[in-house]
Design a protein around this nucleic acid. Structure first.
Lengths: 162, 162
DNA sequence: TATTGTTATACTCTATAACTATA
DNA sequence: TATAGTTATAGAGTATAACAATA
């Protein structure tokens, strides 16, 4: 995890889970706080690792979903990503302008079928490699079993009571 | 978890971990994706639960830290929260205007000592109660042991190699 | 009437840079 | 010179509302 600029320190301090001498009170016991803290750290490492490419976690997920579900519509993609339809437009515009993705006409003339171009598929493979390395670094202190366990526990959060 | 408006559906669909018929490919295996997904769900439940109060996860954390570490400076608070100093200003302004928090002069005339007012402490107790309920609901499918385990695993993420 | 993509708009959270008062 | 708080600004990421074209 190379620090890029040793000489020009930013005003922002790396997020530390616990700072000595600070009383965190109830925050120590909240699942939500632990998840949020972890997410911030992971996000920071992601952007630091993939800054060379013009990609973010959200944009990466979009590419993966479109690649593996070719023909998906924008509304469906929004649903999968859990965001508003309106926000998908700019994401897709961007990829289309970069030549990574195409809007293809569908039977229904209101909607498009999205799919990656050859170039998009090629780029995505590079991104995936970098993301894997990032995810491995971030999870390096967990065994494979623990990572699986972590994903399983996270998956049980926010489920409906039923 | 009461749905507030049954009649006026929003354009946004609740975030679901897995949607049937969608191939998530590598996303299934990424720690970062699982954490991000969980965080989105938790954040949504937080704002739905505490919407009545003018509070967010970030603002709540600030109050807890100041309450339990009276006299803390803005820069130190920024450090603890892992955000830029400049972003603390608006947060504190807001609480001060609402009468929940005060900037007190310190020996060093460049900095303030922050502390909650009586009203701030009273309000925070209400927030804490609501946050506990929210966190319990979100974690309801995990046993106490599993919650502890989850927090421990999350705490191991993003640690330096050493 | 309902749905898809779109535009406009706004708010939160994050960041950097540069200023000022002070140390 | 360095630090604390501040202002200005920008860019993600989210949201809602309303519109045109189409079903």
């Amino acid at each position: 995890m190379p620090k890029q600029k040793e000489t020009a320190p930013s005003q922002v301090v790396a997020f530390n889970a616990r700072i000595e001498g600070i009383n965190y009170d109830i925050l120590e016991e909240l699942t939500g706080y632990a998840v949020r803290r972890a997410q911030l750290s992971i996000y920071a490492d992601f952007t630091a690792s993939l800054g060379v490419y013009d990609i973010t976690p959200q944009r990466f997920s979009s590419l993966v979903i479109v690649c593996n579900n070719p023909g998906i519509s924008q509304t469906r993609l929004a649903e999968v990503m859990g965001i508003a339809r309106s926000n998908v437009v700019a994401i897709i515009d961007n990829f289309e302008q970069a030549g990574l993705l195409e809007r293809q006409g569908s039977g229904d003339r209101r909607s498009y079928m999205l799919h990656l171009t050859k170039e998009g598929q090629r780029q995505l493979e590079k991104y995936k490699q970098a993301v894997k390395e990032h995810d491995d670094r971030v999870s390096q202190h967990l065994t494979m079993k623990e990572r699986q366990q972590l994903r399983a526990l996270l998956g049980k959060l926010c489920m409906e009571p039923k």
